[in-house]
Computed example of a mutant assay.
Amino acid sequence: MQLTRTTDYAIRIIMYLSKTRRVTSAGEIAGQIGIAKKSLLATANKLRSARLIAGHMGVSGGYSLMRRPEDISLLDIMEVTEGSIKINHCLEHGKINSCFLSEYCPVHEFYCDLQKKLEESFASVTIRQLLDRAAKKPE
């Protein structure tokens, strides 16, 4: 499993907005986190739709956080950007391609346990924790 570039961008956008604590222009964010403005706008749109960030119009417009950094987990972001974070299609309930043998499959229970641990791990890490970790590193 590999996270998409969009997820990486989304995490960087939210971390930068957590640092600035103000309405911040798309141009500033893109420049400071090293991504193309077009990519930033596409990713920010997803984050706005999920109500993780707010968009502000006008001359001094831009983006700001809608939740506190300690209330945003990596799982919150991944659920917006990844589409699915399931490690195997058999775990995607209600999907047409969901495996009809999952009740009898010897590896299905292992997948379920692993999926639960993975989601719990991503849910346990907040943006605030990442920022605090970064602040403790010597330069």
Rank of each mutant, 00 (worst) to 15 (best):
R12D: 12
Q115L: 11
H93V: 09
G55S: 05
H108C: 11
I14G: 06
K137W: 03
A26Y: 01
R51A: 12
K117Q: 14
S49C: 10
Y16F: 09
S49A: 11
D132P: 09
F122V: 10
T20C: 03
H89T: 13
G58R: 05
C112P: 15
A50T: 05
R68C: 12
I11C: 09
Y9S: 03
G55R: 00
K46Y: 11
S25L: 04
R22W: 01
I96A: 08
N88C: 11
Y16A: 04
N88A: 14
A54D: 12
N88G: 12
A36Y: 06
Q115P: 09
L17Y: 02
K19E: 10
L47G: 02
V107Q: 13
L75D: 03
L17G: 04
D132T: 10
E109F: 11
A44P: 04
G58W: 00
S18F: 01
R48M: 10
K136Q: 15
I72M: 11
L114N: 12
M78D: 03
L65I: 07
K136T: 14
L118T: 13
H89K: 12
L74H: 02
L114E: 14
M57C: 09
M15L: 15
S102H: 06
Y16N: 02
R5N: 07
G58N: 02
L101I: 15
S98C: 12
T20A: 04
F100C: 14
Q2K: 10
P106Y: 00
M1D: 14
S39V: 02
G61H: 03
V23D: 04
C90L: 12
I87A: 11
A26K: 04
S124V: 06
R51P: 12
E70W: 06
C112K: 14
G83D: 00
G31A: 01
I87Y: 08
R5D: 11
H93Q: 09
G62A: 02
G62C: 01
I85E: 03
L52T: 07
R22V: 08
F122W: 11
A135C: 14
A54F: 08
K46V: 07
E109P: 13
I127R: 06
A54P: 15
M78H: 03
A10E: 10
I85L: 05
T6F: 04
R68S: 15
I13H: 00
T20H: 01
I87P: 10
D132Y: 08
T20M: 04
S84I: 00
G94R: 00
S102A: 14
M57P: 12
S64R: 01
K37N: 05
Y104G: 05
L65C: 06
P106I: 01
A54T: 10
A30E: 00
R133S: 14
S60H: 11
K38H: 05
R68K: 13
T4F: 00
S39D: 13
C99M: 07
R51I: 15
S73D: 09
L131M: 10
H93F: 11
L114K: 15
